[in-house]
Design a protein around this nucleic acid. Structure first.
Lengths: 218, 218
DNA sequence: TGTTAGCTTTGACACAAATCAAACATTACT
DNA sequence: AGTAATGTTTGATTTGTGTCAAAGCTAACA
């Protein structure tokens, strides 16, 4: 959250964020069609967000972790248009959106902050579209792994070790490929000595090799 | 724009929107790396927005037409992260973002409106991700055509006739396929009597057939 | 502690879309 | 009006990823 507030102002802002909610692994934080009331700031845990077609196919839209905001999709129509599911036992701050709007009218810094969060999500999705539209399986998985370690490292975790919270199928859905292709690509990177893989555990041995795969797009 | 303002209020809001800018076909409204100052409301014409990789591959992010807003990507980092190019001679309203922020603090209706515009863009991109991640060439093109006529119809144009403002290559970039595949898929729909195609001119003969292709996802 | 259910890996084969190539149509320019 | 540049269509072939299938691994539960 942005700085530069008086004690009294901070108190008001803290009030928006005081309600907590625990979400067990596999449970829905909100679902497609639910009435929109609040944004959620993830305190601990990991979520996936996804949309589904009538015939039951799922597209994972993103994986969100501590400090990230989910629920922005609900603002347009006052109802959510995607599902947010906890991939492990998690906790979120419930932030009623009307409170956020009231306070951002009072505090320009907060207003700016909210705008940046939404814009950041738009830019993120632009990059995913590039991934899905232009890249091959290896490039997609390399980009995915690099993005993941980078975010984990920013949160104080290892630069090289990941314990995946999602299945091969969920990774595949996010990256627009089948679970078998995800598995094969993991095995290929492993054979080449770029990573070590054991089920959900991944260790990045040669990050430069991943970056090269990601940049050196055919 | 939202209603329910006094004459005086309307005047203030009008002031934000008073600067116009003409953009010739093929010219850049803004480019990746440009400093962000303003959002742009399209008055006339059509734009494409796109991102590019170092090696020069382009991913079209969207096609925007009258009444739609471009530039939201610039808010996060105070600089744009995509390109907006006019596909025909166009005119936009230049809306300095700091003015928008000032006024939305004054007028809750405007604030809400701005939030909805950003959320709508997020939801739109979610749907494109579904398209790119889960659908086959025919489904993608069917979805594209249906979306296009729907938006044109909402602006008073025909429900069945389209004059495409973009090349096969640009359509392909948007839909994650090669221009040859776009062309072949057009030909296939044409052979099946679903549409008539002559270069940039497309007439939709059986909209239900397109909807069926779009929904009846393998 | 054995059993089941869920996830992952690997193999063989099929297929949708990419690639390469050439001809054709249209538009812009001199 | 003629010519060049750009965009489009269509064909032949290749290829990356999907599909189908089976076996292996892991974790949860009775």
């Amino acid at each position: 959250m942005p700085l530069g507030f008086t004690e009294n102002e901070m108190k008001k802002i803290d009030d928006v964020v005081k309600t907590r909610r625990r979400v067990k692994q596999g449970d829905l934080l909100f679902g497609d069609g639910d009435i929109f009331t609040s944004l959620y700031a993830i305190r601990t845990g990991v979520f996936k967000t996804s949309v589904s077609t009538e015939d039951g196919r799922e597209q994972v839209i993103g994986f969100q972790m501590a400090g990230e905001i989910v629920g922005l999709d609900g603002i347009v129509n006052d109802s959510h248009s995607c599902n947010a599911v906890a991939l492990e036992d998690s906790e979120v701050c419930v932030m009623p959106f009307s409170n956020i709007e009231d306070l951002s009218r009072e505090f320009p810094e907060l207003q700016r902050h909210v705008h940046k969060i939404m814009s950041r999500e738009i830019v993120r999705e632009n990059k995913v579209m590039m991934l899905l539209g232009n890249m091959r399986a290896e490039e997609r998985l390399a980009a995915f792994l690099l993005n993941l370690v980078q975010r984990l490292h920013a949160r104080g975790f290892s630069q090289s070790e990941i314990v995946l919270r999602m299945t091969r199928e969920e990774i595949g859905s996010y990256l627009g490929m089948k679970l078998e292709t995800v598995s094969r690509t993991f095995s290929k990177f492993s054979d080449e000595g770029i990573i070590q893989v054991k089920q959900r555990y991944v260790r990045i041995i040669q990050p430069e090799a991943l970056k090269k795969i990601f940049n050196l797009q055919a």
